[in-house]
């Protein structure tokens, strides 16, 4: 167990040095949005999560729960996000794939819109699409994975695209999973700025434990994560969820999350998120909510099929 923790720490140290310096080009808002409805309810602290949509958080975890997730998020009618993620196993490795599509209105021709301003809209129509493909393997209880991402953004002033990489590692420690991940790393080894976009590169250490019984009918779960971004800001996040399981196969879950909002890219977002899930056998309907400053809030719904 000590060697696993040491491994995670070593990766953290080496990766921290790889975080790029602050850049002036805008960060695509799609890269700042939640990749999972459940994760959104948990304050986006999901690097140790599971399910197909964990592909947006940690490639090492893509094999932890098989299925497909389809979700849709609305930003007060001024933007909408659709995403699809699925996973499977091939030759002993876990494979995940996902696609996300964001349509939004920006006040600037270069699409520089804080994710927290998506509800407010703007005069320039823009869209982003993100493709994700990941693979992970597990050896001696340690899971490692990599995700390749490709973002294409259509803006008023033209099209921008950039490839990215995520590297993750995770392991189970007792009832909890701990994970370390480097997200949105520059796949071009420093040439990403040439695309006219800034990547929200960050290193995140997190843990999660779910399904802890409380009495006969309830389970609790909790997740926590702390990220260090390119500007060396420490961004903590966390969430808890409580599930009521009246009969096997059925569960009703409520969750609440909190996070420190990175400024200025996410200004306008509330630090608090809420979520809920109704799960019936292989199907689950997820919902998450986050208040935005200004005219509205964002709602996200997702359907998971295990």
């Amino acid at each position: 167990m000590k060697s696993r923790v040491a491994g995670l720490a070593l990766l953290a140290l080496s990766a921290t040095s790889a975080l790029a310096a602050q850049r002036s080009a805008p960060i695509p808002p799609l890269l700042l949005l939640p990749g999972s409805t459940r994760a959104m309810g948990l304050g986006n602290a999901y690097v140790a999560g599971s399910g197909p949509d964990v592909i947006s958080y940690n490639p090492a975890q893509v094999g932890e729960s098989r299925g497909t997730v389809l979700s849709w998020q609305s930003f007060a009618g001024n933007a909408s996000l659709a995403s699809l993620a699925t996973n499977t196993s091939v030759f002993g490795a876990s494979i995940g794939a996902g696609v996300q599509y964001l349509e939004f209105r920006s006040r600037n021709t270069d699409g520089a819109t804080p994710s927290g301003a998506l509800t407010r809209g703007g005069q320039y129509t823009a869209s982003s699409v993100l493709g994700l493909l990941s693979a992970s393997v597990e050896r001696s209880g340690i899971r490692v994975g990599v995700t390749t991402k490709y973002l294409a953004q259509q803006l008023a002033n033209g099209r921008r695209s950039v490839p990215m990489l995520d590297f993750g590692i995770a392991t189970d420690l007792g009832p909890a999973t701990v994970a370390l991940v480097l997200q949105d790393a520059d796949a071009l080894l420093g040439d990403a700025p040439a695309s006219g976009l800034t990547l929200p590169t960050r290193m995140t250490l997190g843990g999660m434990s779910t399904g802890i019984p409380v009495g006969t009918w309830f389970d609790v779960g909790a997740s926590a994560a702390v990220s260090i971004d390119a500007e060396s800001r420490v961004l903590p996040a966390g969430g808890v969820e409580l599930s009521y399981l009246p009969v096997s196969g059925w569960s009703f879950t409520g969750r609440i999350g909190g996070q420190r909002i990175a400024q200025p890219y996410r200004s306008g977002e509330s630090a608090l998120t809420l979520g809920a899930t109704i799960s019936i056998d292989r199907f689950a309907l997820d919902y998450a909510f986050q208040q935005y400053s200004g005219p509205g809030a964002t709602h996200r719904v997702g359907v998971r099929i295990r």
Binding site: P213, T216, W217, P246, V247
Partner: peptide, 14 residues
Amino acid sequence: TWGSYDGGPQSARY
């Protein structure tokens, strides 16, 4: 000691 929960404390769920 075992009582009515044949599958453990949470087995009333199933």
